[in-house]
Nucleic acid binder design. Structure first.
Lengths: 219, 219
DNA sequence: CCTCGCGCATGACACTTGTCATCATGAATT
DNA sequence: AATTCATGATGACAAGTGTCATGCGCGAGG
């Protein structure tokens, strides 16, 4: 069965695409395998539930395409993509994630990914993306791509996004300052400029906005 | 094929369980359908992507079991469960969610659900839960049930959790006070006691803790 | 070379938050 | 009838937070 994309004529032999799937939720992972295996030109050769298991699984199974969720324990999807791309540059990577954060998209593509699909997309989109990417093309959800271009990249300096991100657990300034080996004043200055640049009025909303745009560095 | 649970002998006729699936992410929804349809005693009669479409879909298709994600646009899963349970008390409900918030579990069961499965669980667990629930039993992940019992219910008064929840978007006190038609002082008092009861030091961490335990009222 | 941006720091100031004491009301218990 | 308790309010005070001016050193680019 084919959900979308590609062409196959009677008598044409099928080129099976070997896929590795990385997603932290077991049920979703298994379900996606069931979905992908409905296509007769897809074959899932391995699945992993942690980012830090991706590279060794790629080594073992040599898949053609790797589907990577961004939110994963151990190692996030972007970092995993960088690792895979460094060791196996011929291996195609598709990011598959819940949120279409424009900043994520940019970093994903810079990390060596060839495709970006949100979990809100229909199954046909995923199938079509896998086939296109396997053939060497680069595929990004057009809506997302437009958003990413219109919003542009993060206005936050690396340090600003690092400091802002350090407040994700609601710690007070003093703790964050100690943790980053900075003075409290410095932390408040970075915070202040991050608040200004995000167009918000306090750290909490700055954090929310930065997060929804994918402007925060490493989790 | 059967992943787990139940018994079937050669010659025994199969009782097919009609299922309605509600999940906001199209890809996950489709994938879960593919997974469930692998079982020859499951049949997915309808899927919806919004909480406020659940009841009418139940009316139309009269499923035996409803699988409800908690996070959904339109109407959250718990409220949807209450509606379904009121109109169709014979229809069995299973909550299927990303997080095992103990508070969610409690409210889910009070809302008339018969089962609670986290998306981290293996597919066999879901299948077994569906079969058990269809036969009239009540099934809750034992780990989760233990947690819920050990933590107990929310110590926050309804008003406290409402006020605390109003800070989810990072608004300052003045705005929240205006929005809730309260004086600023009152808001700060509720906030203060919520902070105390969650054992935290500021509203941000109070919010995080309350959220992770499922202590906040309506989204 | 010299400016510009970034990283880092200090100190001062105004404003926001968190805590506490106190008080009033109405509903539910005892 | 007395007590408890959630709701709602005020005022005062201490901490925490956000802004700004100012300073220094460094590296990249005009």
């Amino acid at each position: 069965m084919r959900l979308a994309g590609g062409t196959s004529y009677p008598g044409t032999e099928l080129r099976v695409i070997d896929i590795l799937l990385a997603d932290d939720q077991e049920l979703v992972r298994t379900a996606l395998v069931a979905l992908l295996e409905l296509e007769d030109d897809f074959h899932v050769v391995a699945t992993v539930g942690r980012g830090d298991e991706v590279v060794s699984a790629v080594e073992r199974t040599q898949p053609m395409v790797v589907l990577l969720d961004i939110e994963m324990p151990g190692l996030d999807g972007i970092s995993a993509a960088i690792e895979v791309h460094r060791h196996y540059p011929n291996c195609r990577i598709i990011m598959l994630t819940t949120f279409g954060r424009p900043g994520y998209l940019r970093r994903a593509m810079e990390s060596g990914a060839s495709g970006f699909v949100v979990k809100d997309a229909p199954a046909a989109t995923l199938a079509a993306t896998i086939r296109s990417v396997a053939e060497g093309r680069t595929v990004v959800d057009p809506v997302l791509a437009g958003e990413a271009l219109s919003i542009g990249q993060s206005p936050l300096s690396p340090r600003e996004s690092e400091v802002l991100g350090a407040f994700r657990h609601g710690a007070p300034v003093a703790e964050v300052a100690a943790h980053l080996h900075l003075s409290e004043g410095t932390v408040r200055n970075y915070l202040s400029s991050a608040i200004t640049k995000t167009g918000t009025k306090n750290r909490a909303s700055a954090l929310l906005r930065a997060e929804e745009l994918g402007w925060l560095s490493s989790p």
